[in-house]
Design a protein around this nucleic acid. Structure first.
Lengths: 343, 343
DNA sequence: CGTTTCACCGTAAGCGGTTACATAGACCCT
DNA sequence: AGGGTCTATGTAACCGCTTACGGTGAAACG
């Protein structure tokens, strides 16, 4: 590995000049600059990032907090891959790397640890990370708040946080839900139910409120028994749908707060001999891969998946360079109409 | 941020002793060790990893090479999330972090870059990475070979590589395919076709050879027209199935080298009025989430998804510490029987 | 009692960069 | 000619930690 010193010697200049060539090129004479660059190139010079970080007290790395919650072992992010594609791509464009932090030095089981803010913040300092990107692992709102308050620049995904250098990006959950209900009402449905996410979950709450707004907007009656709680998992969708179908006056349409639960509802309907969409229209949320494949294909509220990552990347970079509070980002959603709503 | 020097002063020892407390605890007197640890704890001391890496010439980071191939924009890894869970978990347990490298400083579009081995290897040196984990992005066999030859410890996933400090982990693709064919033959099928992956893809080739072995084992006739090429994507499965169904003597069963193509075949059958599994049995490969949800649910060869990550982690750590060539890891597969095969 | 051994710890030289400050020369001005 | 400016570069301190080497004092030995 060639070092700056070697280059300096070969070029007959000092290490300071070599450093300047790469950091403040305009301050060094064109001729010597070219000479240094040429030699550096020949030797395949790669500046030592550790030395650099030590000296400048900053690195080009962003931490990624993505822990699987041991209380929800089967939890999978609905679109992690697209999210990462967007995130990595936007960060890469500005020279940032993504560091997936290891915190529990002694975790024995696969995916057995829960995000410990203190451990992550410590890691952030150790590595001089520019900031953190927090991926919702299903139930970490409290932990995320601790991150936000730590003073480390961070942006949370799908969880509203507040802190001196913290912000978040989320979909327009209320708007998406509202558009789903509007669509169903437009198809003539009056008895529209909803299956919610787990209590305390923010996107879920926003989707419920969107549902409410949609019902209000359409002048439809709101019944308590039409709002039944799920947990985003498929089985809870099945259970909820069974409950709804057993009502004296069952709904003719249901908006599920996740595609997984919508699929669960689909299975419940199928098992009960209820035809979808003729007897029961179903709309989901997320637009996961499965949505397009089930039969009937699921109408759903699509989120801008790579856009999530891109927005997070921009936000974190803005907080690092701008060094201030940033406005939360709310991404638009899009209703993808397929067969399950009967349109 | 407390530094080692501060701790040293407060404890009335030298920085060397502080360093020893954390790196070779046995060489320092118990009393002073406790004193140092207590003070360090009180100050929330976090050793500066940059300084550490600079001094020791090694970091605790492993690079992750995961580029989306611009030639295959829609490509998604069939089980990235589970893979990462296993990988991160196993690495974390040994204190390693995963660094998702950014190489193309000027990539403008989302997911527009292809792995450039040189850039990655350079990054590896800059950051003193222990090694690299290479995720198959669909068509990078050549690039992977360049990695393997670079001398950087690396383990490739699903691509066989050979190098001084390189190895790979893959599923028992041949065995899995063979078990699929065996299962179909056991159900009485004699006309069994296969839909392959893209030419040059190693797992695909292994699956074809497993198919051949399975046919041979069952004493079944092998026909060239029963082996039709796809590209792992769903549409190619549809096209292939259409081709197969149009034959004078269409197969009664088909083994697809990916679940996506199996789903495509399913759609083709449905469109052609061919009943699955009565008229056509279908078996896929991967056991992606969709497999359990399509109708009929897909019988498929399941891979050990988190196991992939765990094996990769172990392999790369072994190469780093052991510093030698490691044996390739072949993970067992498991036939998951659902409805699409008619069993 | 002189000598050896050993546990413990300090000294200081790096690791490879960055950067404040100093210096040297070229140029322009009065 | 003396002084001021500006550009281009060198000098050296520093970032925080690791580690080879050497020193000190107490215990063990002959």
């Amino acid at each position: 590995m060639a070092t700056g010193r070697e280059i300096a010697q070969l070029c007959g200049v000092s290490v300071a000049t070599v450093s300047r060539v790469f950091n403040q090129p305009e301050t060094v004479n064109e001729e010597t600059r070219d000479r240094v660059l040429r030699v550096a190139n020949e030797l395949g010079y790669q500046p030592n990032e550790s030395a650099r970080a030590l000296s400048t007290k900053q690195s080009t790395m962003i931490g990624l907090v993505w822990d699987t919650d041991h209380r929800r072992p089967g939890w999978r992010h609905p679109y992690l891959q697209d999210l990462l594609i967007g995130l990595k791509s936007a960060l890469s464009a500005h020279g940032y790397h993504l560091l997936m932090l290891a915190t529990s030095g002694d975790a024995r089981e696969v995916g057995a640890s829960l995000a410990d803010p203190v451990a992550y913040v410590n890691m952030t300092r150790r590595h001089h990370l520019g900031g953190l990107v927090l991926i919702d692992s299903g139930s970490d709102a409290e932990a995320f708040e601790a991150f936000a308050q730590s003073g480390v620049p961070c942006v949370a995904l799908d969880v509203a946080v507040d802190g001196p250098r913290a912000t978040y990006v989320t979909s327009d959950n209320a708007g998406g839900a509202q558009s789903a209900v509007r669509h169903l009402a437009g198809l003539g449905h009056t008895r529209i139910a909803t299956i919610t996410g787990p209590p305390g979950n923010q996107p879920s709450a926003a989707r419920v409120s969107g549902y409410r707004k949609g019902m209000l907007e359409a002048g439809l009656e709101m019944r308590d028994e039409y709002v039944v709680a799920g947990d985003f998992y498929r089985p809870s969708g099945t259970a909820a749908a069974q409950r709804l179908l057993a009502l004296d006056e069952p709904p003719t349409a249901v908006f599920a707060a996740s595609d997984e639960m919508a699929v669960g509802a689909l299975l419940a309907a199928r098992a009960a001999g209820v035809r979808v969409p003729q007897d029961l229209a179903i709309v989901g949320f997320d637009d996961i891969e499965i949505a397009a494949v089930v039969d009937p294909a699921l109408t759903t509220v699509a989120q801008d998946k790579p856009g999530f990552g891109v927005a997070a990347a921009k936000a974190i970079m803005a907080m690092i360079t701008g060094a201030g509070q940033e406005e939360p980002v709310v991404l638009p959603t899009r209703l993808v109409v397929r067969q399950s709503c009967g349109a």
